[in-house]
């Protein structure tokens, strides 16, 4: 069983998001990066499958500038066997089709049985790349996985639907599955894992050119059209003002 896990490095939820001077993207200085949240669950799911079957290989794959090797090392430290780094100068490409093409080209010859990726990234939130790669490589696909069960060349996926519904979907391998957060409890790397990760192989791929099919023209802070009453003061003053608003304005007490 050969499993690819696509991991993306994204700004952390508490990171500042400075916009660059021509408003085309962020100014990367001052951003603190982390592994995209649902990618972490995707990695854990792959590691658990490998451990349960006592056989196989988990390969973490990330696209971006050199800094993405931090999330690659994190994946290796948690137990992935090796890594592929698709090197790009910037991660400002907001085009799932061209990104998926780069991934598909880089991993086509690996013939993975499974590709796991996060459902969507916390930066762009396009939510397409894993499915497009699967389609490009002729694999079965499924999104929003909340559980997986593997047996004899078939993967059964519990998909999340809208309004609290779920559905089990079965498909033959190879398959590309996008993983929803919350389906397992991601592990922390052990000290031994961190030491061992340093010796693991990262294969660096430098892709050629690609067509861009969509791009960000302008990035900006949204202007709220809602008048928000900001309540300020000491904790006691805030509490008094809230109670006052509940009673006289919102009229719920």
């Amino acid at each position: 069983m050969k499993i690819a896990v696509l991991v993306k490095q994204v700004p952390g939820s508490d990171s500042p998001l400075p916009i660059n001077s021509n408003q085309s993207w962020l100014d990367e200085n001052g951003i603190s990066y982390v592994m995209n949240e649902c990618d972490n669950y995707a990695l854990e799911e792959a590691l658990q499958i490998k451990e349960e079957n006592d056989d196989g290989e988990v390969v973490v794959i990330s696209l971006g500038p050199d800094r993405v090797q931090k999330v690659i090392r994190e994946g290796l430290a948690k137990g992935a066997d090796r890594a592929i780094h698709i090197q790009m100068n910037s991660d400002s490409i907001a085009d799932p089709l061209s990104l998926a093409t780069l991934f598909a080209d880089a991993i086509r010859d690996e013939k993975f049985d499974l590709i796991f990726s996060g459902l969507q990234s916390d930066d762009l939130g396009m939510g397409q790349t894993g499915i497009i790669i699967g389609e490009m490589l002729g694999m079965s696909t499924a999104s929003l996985a909340m559980a997986t069960e593997l047996s004899e060349g078939i993967i059964k996926v519990k998909r999340e639907l809208e309004a609290g519904f779920f559905q089990w979907v079965s498909m033959s391998l190879p398959a590309s599955i996008t993983i929803q957060s919350g389906l397992n409890i991601p592990r922390y790397p052990s000290l031994k894992g961190i030491m061992g990760a340093k010796k693991k192989e990262i294969n660096i791929v430098t892709p050629g050119g690609h067509d861009v099919k969509q791009s960000a023209k302008k990035v900006y802070v949204p202007q709220s059209d809602k008048q928000t009453v900001m309540i300020e003061g000491s904790v006691d003053q805030i509490v008094d003002k809230l109670v006052e608003a509940f009673r006289n304005e919102i009229k719920v007490i």
């Binding site: 089709l97 939130g125 939510g127 397409q128 499915i131 497009i132 999340e160 809208e162």
Partner: peptide, 23 residues
Amino acid sequence: HTYQVRDYVPKISAKLMKPFLVD
């Protein structure tokens, strides 16, 4: 931009090599 659309429309994007501008 429903859950169903997120599931199958990326495949159309790949088949046609046409961009999917989402959400």
